[in-house]
Design a protein around this nucleic acid. Structure first.
Length: 426
RNA sequence: GGUGGGUUAGCGAAGUGGCCAAACGCGAUUGACUGUAAAUCAAUUGGUCUCCGACCUUCGAUGGUUCGAAUCCAUCACCCACCA
């Protein structure tokens, strides 16, 4: 199966500038391709996985992937998919974000192989030295404003209330310049991205044709959305990050375990390297034994291993067992330590537990599980507060030294799965 | 610039002198059921406390009338509509 056929069955093929010639080109031998990543945060999130893994899929098929960090484009801001003008990031922010993302980007591709090593560039390297006058003459001259205005990303903004600044309007030129540069210096013939990048990518293809008289292809895949049409990768508490400091491996694992039945097969195709047969088997499972959620668990296992490694997966599985398993009877301190690492932790003055102890309600507020004592009381009355995984019902209940696990921890829980560990050491 | 209408809790929206911490809907939180699901049902949804009750702070802002104001009056700010 060729890379294009594989993308097709995975549902990753949305559009291509010329699939017939691209098919021929790919059959003829390894192709160099790239995808850019926007440094709008200091970590990648699950939404970035689709393009990143697509690069990896190409590499596995023998092609040469280039990861492009948007050190230049990140200074401007891509208007695609945005309904309003963005605030500019400071150069320090962009530099910081690039540095953090670079490490993550590097983890998904093989830079060491002799055959088709991946490469990583920062577009600031070739964009920053170009003067404004040079840019207008060498790049701007090839663009028709009429065409630029017709791009979706620009048109929706012009039709909306907020308009678009000259800065963001110019964004497509910068991205086109990148593609053109990579085409001439590194023989990069293909750019991939999500469908919202179509306009920016084809701008590059046009520039390459006009300026270099060469061919280049655009290949885009669908945006990762849920069955209800909303954007995938967000939870109530924000994006799901790849950085373990921002989203713990446990939460990362749980995010995928909780995938909807209607989404899980598509997610397996988009985000894992499982084979067609393996995914078909899991799809069968979803239909015959939905309650077992084998597909969700496979998805979560695959991705946690891929992003965080086997050890982190082990910890996340153990923590899940405890946090969803119920009673804490007989657990060892070693296993509990996994939980401590995966759940928010707050310090607690050990003196507060001495003698009569501290009311549970105060601890719930201290742990950040309730915004006020009144709310904490209501949660407790409704049976939604657990100490060490035992439901509490007594309003006047206090926590004392006797409740400490291993002499230093209190495991406080609200509802089914919101936990905080109170650490009373020292 | 003129005339009229509006600004109420996370959002939408009732309330036009006391029974208003403010109907109702959505959202959110908790519980039951369940598959760590969906749907459904129930409770809660300004704060404090000695919590079946009491108190404190809220209805754009400030000041006033009144025993009593989200509600009446004045000024200011912002939004909308129509007219120029």
């Amino acid at each position: 199966m060729s890379i294009l056929e594989e993308l097709e069955w995975r549902g990753l093929y949305a559009d291509c500038t010329d699939s017939a010639t691209l098919t021929q080109r790919i059959a003829a031998g390894p192709i160099t391709l790239y995808c850019g990543f926007d440094p709008s945060a200091d970590s990648l999130h699950v939404g970035n996985l689709v393009p990143l893994l697509a690069l990896r899929r190409f590499q596995l098929h023998g092609h040469i992937p280039i990861v492009l960090a948007g050190g230049a484009t990140g200074m401007i801001g891509d208007p695609s998919g945005k309904s309003a003008e963005r605030n500019l990031q400071t150069p320090e922010q962009v530099a910081h974000n690039i540095a953090s993302q670079k490490k993550q980007l590097a983890g998904f591709l093989d830079f060491e192989t002799n055959l088709n090593p991946a490469r990583l560039f920062n577009n600031a390297d070739w964009t920053a030295p170009v003067s404004y006058l040079e840019f207008l003459r060498d790049v701007g001259k090839y663009f028709s404003v009429n065409v630029m205005l017709a791009k979706d990303s620009v048109r929706t903004r012009l039709e909306g209330d907020s308009g678009i600044s000259y800065t963001e309007f110019s964004y497509q030129l910068l991205q086109a310049f990148d593609f053109c540069h990579l085409r001439s210096k590194f023989d990069c013939e293909l750019q991939i991205g999500a469908t919202d990048q179509w306009g920016n990518i084809t701008a590059g293809c046009d520039l390459i044709r006009k300026k270099l008289g060469a061919t280049a292809w655009a290949l885009v895949f669908p945006l990762l959305t849920k069955a209800d049409g909303t954007k995938y990768g967000k939870t109530a508490s924000g994006a799901v990050w790849l950085d373990p400091k921002k989203t713990s491996p446990y939460r990362f694992y749980q995010f995928f375990v909780q995938a909807d039945d209607a989404d899980v097969v598509r997610l397996l195709k988009f985000l894992t390297f499982l084979t067609r047969e393996e995914i078909a088997a899991l799809e069968q499972e979803v239909q015959t034994h939905p309650g077992a959620r084998a597909a969700q668990k496979s998805l979560a296992r695959e991705l946690t291993t891929l992003v965080h490694g086997a050890d982190a997966l082990h910890g996340a599985l153990k923590a899940s067992e405890i946090l969803f398993g119920g009673a804490l009877d007989g657990i060892t301190e070693e296993i509990f330590q996994d939980v401590v690492g995966e759940v928010p932790t707050r310090d607690l003055d050990p003196g507060k537990l001495a003698g009569a102890g501290t009311p549970i309600i105060d601890l719930v507020v201290h742990a950040g599980l309730a915004p006020s004592k009144g709310q904490a009381r209501k949660d407790l009355e409704a049976g939604g507060i657990y100490l060490n995984n035992v439901r509490l019902s007594d309003l006047s209940r206090t926590a004392t030294t006797n409740d400490l696990l291993f002499g230093k921890y209190l495991l406080l829980r609200k509802g089914k799965r919101t936990y905080t560990v109170l650490s009373a050491r020292g």
